[in-house]
Amino acid sequence: MNAFRFLGDMTHLFSVLVLLLKIYATKSCSGVSRKTQELYMVVFVARYMDLFTDYISLYNSVMKVVFITSSAAIVWCMRRHPQVRRTYDRDQDTFRHVVLVAASFVLALIFNERFTFREICWAFSIYLEAVAILPQLVLLQRSRNVDNLTGQYVLFLGAYRAFYILNWIYRYFTEGHTSRWIPWIAGLVQTALYADFFYYYFLSWKNNVKLELPA
């Protein structure tokens, strides 16, 4: 465990807590893409299958349970909670996220570390996580006014994978040159997708105006 990875995990955890806070405190999920939340739930389930088979550390197991349950809780809220579900921008959240699932799965069948069920699920979760934010970014461009908590949620979500890239650089130089090109490439794509969001978030912060993504 190194500082970059710990910072990354904490930033990721914080992003989920910010979203849970927004939904719980405002009883609203306006501006939040349910499709992105569903994709994240699939990512965590596909990646953390080893939760019951391989014990790595208490920290690792606890965090896996937290991520799976929190993503499931957010999806449940957006689908079933009587007050929250009414605030879902159904007609704005129109990204065809099934395409992302299919493309990631095909990619995982072709590019994986080993052609085993576990490894294909792991590669699938890595590829899907890289593009899971797309429905949310499209929704932000559509819904002109982005409320602060949703903006902060996306910001922390983007920052977490950037910390992981630093973690991979650190591990590359300290633990030997393990070939981990799958998370490397997917992580770079994932962070690049946030680039324009980071730019407009920084502008809105600098000019002290509401965050608005150009259509």
Partner: peptide, 10 residues
């Protein structure tokens, strides 16, 4: 066979 590197990251 080379032991599979344990996936210790989240």
């Amino acid at each position: 066979a080379t032991p599979e590197p344990v996936k210790d990251e989240l």
